[in-house]
């Protein structure tokens, strides 16, 4: 149980690393997803640990929906950026500012 929560935070750490180190828009979306997967484990296990499994699962369902919406928007933005600029590199986009 404890290790589940540790794994959740490990996923958060991997996701944070991705968000800080990566520049590709789609990979940033993937890093966000990793973070939210960790959140999913954390809420389900937390509900479980306090003896309210139904509560934890209910939070988990809501979480899955919410992060899917964020992923969809992120992917749509990535596709648009690529169409307009021919690159997925966030720094290339930034340089346009001039």
């Amino acid at each position: 149980m404890i290790w589940g929560l540790v794994a959740a935070f490990a996923l958060l750490a991997v996701g944070l690393y991705g968000l800080l180190a990566l520049r590709n828009l789609i990979k940033l979306t993937i890093a966000l997803q990793l973070m939210m997967k960790g959140g999913l484990i954390a809420v389900v296990l937390a509900g479980d640990a306090v003896g309210q499994r139904g509560l934890g699962e209910s939070l988990g369902v809501t979480l899955i929906i919410a992060d899917t919406v964020a992923a969809v928007i992120g992917l749509a933005l990535a596709v648009l950026v690529r169409r307009r600029l021919g690159s997925l590199d966030i720094e290339v986009v930034s340089k346009l500012r001039g």
Partner: peptide
């Protein structure tokens, strides 16, 4: 505008992800 939008989406989602972890710990 797209760049700003993407930054907004990523950083907002990151913030709300951290809140989820915070909520899990508080619930625990």
């Amino acid at each position: 505008n797209l760049e700003a939008g993407f930054k907004y989406v990523v950083q907002s989602a990151m913030g709300s992800g951290l809140v989820v972890f915070g909520i899990a710990l508080i619930l625990l």
